[in-house]
Design a protein around this nucleic acid. Sequence first.
RNA 1: UGAGGUGUAGCGCAGUUUGGUAGCGCGCUUGGUUAGGGACCAAGAGGUCGUGGGUUCAAGUCCCGUCACCUCAACCA
Length: 475
Amino acid sequence: MAKDTFVEQIADIDTDFPQWYTDVVVKTKLVDYGPVKGTMVIRPYGYAIWENIRRELDGRFKAAGIENAYFPLLIPMSFMTKEAEHVEGFAPEVAVVTHAGGEKLAEPLVIRPTSETIIGSMYGKWIQSYRDLPVLMNQWANVMRWEKTTRPFLRTSEFLWQEGHTVHASEEEAMEETLKMLAVYEEFARTCLAMPVLTGRKTEKEKFAGAVATFGMEAMMHDGKSLQAGTTHYLGQNFAKAFGIQFLDKDGALKYGYTTSFGVSTRLIGALIMTHGDKRGLVMPPVVAPVQAVIVPIASQKAGVLEACRDLKQKLAAAGVRVVLDESENSPGWKFNEWEMKGVPVRIELGPRDLEAGKCMMARRDTLEKGEYALDAAVQSVQALLKEISENMYASAKARMEKRIVRAASLEELLAGVEGGNFVRAGWCGCRACEDKVKEFAQATARVLDGENTSETCVVCGKKAESTVIFARAY
RNA sequence: UGAGGUGUAGCGCAGUUUGGUAGCGCGCUUGGUUAGGGACCAAGAGGUCGUGGGUUCAAGUCCCGUCACCUCAACCA
């Protein structure tokens, strides 16, 4: 076989993880590049991952009483400028529509980079009374941020996401909602993506433009860098005041509501690829895998083989397994590698020898182990295997992450830690100057605050630490 | 914005130094033989060499301009 097969190329560049990542997502046909810089076209196999993520998350939102709605793509410029910090934070990266209908517009329209402002303006009209609260809504949409550098899935100029927006009568209730959704994200990442995350509050420097407090979940990629995989924001009354979200309370007083927002995006696809991928390609977590099992017939021209494969496929599909039967003309070896690269959790091999023995071979993608299974119990075996793979993927990713969280008592130790591909836990006095110093010295940022009560000292200035921080280099 | 690099077939590249018929691998098409870890044989299709101008008998190759993209730096919930 020639040198430039996918697997060999990937193995060759295994040391350079971002390059590996780009190659894999393109070669497994998850995406193509769009005509506008930094845009991507998500191909069906990649989009199927998103649909599965969406289905799982949507169920969790519904269970939390959140309804789906949809708000406009274009936001009047004047809406954006109503909240001072918000406009300052997003101004550099918004795309603006200045012309429409063949004429210059009196007021430019911003293509939403996020929808706090337009949703806030509607909430201002809808909410009158404490009886209207809480308002719990979510929208599935595309947003655009004109980034200077882009990377498939992790940072694209247009991306798909969900953004939840809620309004509450009290500060306590809004904060509770913010933390509740953070917990929903963590549980979703664990059970559906098999992805361990660190959750916690963000520093002032890293928080969302316009928020009072931001909380995030951070995932560790194979190369030790951190990826912000989701955030929830407690917005206080900042947006309520900017958009007149007021209600008449039980005591007869007119009060401003307290709002929250939270979101995860197609970046999650990048996160799961980079958490689980190995040098053979993708390793899909079973719950969101577009294809959970693939059947590869062996010597399919022999009598009975294809029939048996089709029969098995039907039984698996009836049991709710997302299954594909690869009837293409390629050789079995080619199919093995192809589906392995696409990360399909379970591969079933079925040939004449198996049929005679009433058995089939199954190989699992996470450990690459292969074993014999009884053909008449294949459906149960696949279901059990999928569950086990999901749990094993989470456990091994978690063990990998925990092994690479190190402590640092000095800037030098912190630098050595992040250079070795670790998350570094260290004390921090809470001041911006020390946070900036870490960035300058170690090219690492504070990912999450981890424990507010600590007896440690600040890794930079040596004063009493206000909190412990996880520092890491980040995507 | 600073520095460097690349544009040649769907993809990856050679050819440019020294100007002389447009090449290689993969992929694709057709037919056949194969089949438990990326099979083999044979025959094919596919390119105004990013773009505009110049030099020359002759330009992928030399000269000038221009556009796009990539990497690093910077920037970036």
